[in-house]
Computed example of a mutant assay.
Amino acid sequence: MIDIALYIAMAVVGLSQVMAMVRLLKGPMVGDRILALDTMVVNAIAMIILVGMHWGTQIYFESALIFAMLGFVSTVALCRFVLRGDIIE
């Protein structure tokens, strides 16, 4: 029963990833594209966690944490670059 729920969750997260990629490509402004990239990072983290649950290994959870930290820092850096023109003050 849990396998069916995991497959459904993977399909929903995959669909969400595709919709975020469409927003990334069609986004009329830079802010929309940055938000789409951040959404894609969150979806990738969810997919990593779902794969870790499906295979029953803990290494995926640690990699999801590292990916979350890198995704947050890269989103902040990209926003600072768009707003100020530089990352380091």
Rank of each mutant, 00 (worst) to 15 (best):
V51F: 07
Q17C: 09
G85W: 13
S16F: 10
F72V: 02
A20Y: 04
A36S: 07
Y60D: 13
E62D: 14
V51R: 02
A44V: 05
M53H: 06
L37I: 09
A64D: 08
M10L: 15
T39D: 05
V76D: 01
M19G: 13
D86H: 10
I87Q: 04
L25I: 11
I34H: 00
H54Q: 13
M21H: 11
G85P: 09
Q58K: 15
C79I: 11
V30Y: 13
L24D: 09
L25R: 04
M21Y: 10
K26Q: 01
F61M: 01
R84E: 15
V22M: 15
I45M: 12
H54T: 15
S74Q: 06
A44W: 04
I59A: 14
G85E: 06
V76H: 03
M53A: 10
G52A: 06
A36F: 04
W55V: 13
S63L: 15
I59E: 14
T57C: 06
D86I: 13
I45K: 05
Q58Y: 15
S74N: 07
M47N: 02
S63N: 13
G56N: 09
V73R: 02
L37N: 10
I59K: 12
F72E: 00
S16T: 11
R84C: 14
S63A: 15
G56V: 07
L35F: 09
Y60H: 08
V82R: 06
G85C: 10
I87F: 06
V76P: 02
S74E: 00
V42T: 07
M53Q: 10
L37M: 15
I87D: 04
G56H: 14
L25F: 13
V73E: 03
V73D: 02
L78F: 05
L78G: 03
W55S: 07
V13D: 01
L50A: 11
V12I: 12
P28C: 12
G31Y: 12
A46I: 03
A11I: 03
V30A: 13
R84W: 15
R80T: 10
L37D: 11
T75L: 08
G56P: 09
L25N: 02
A68V: 01
L50F: 14
A44K: 00
V12N: 02
F72P: 00
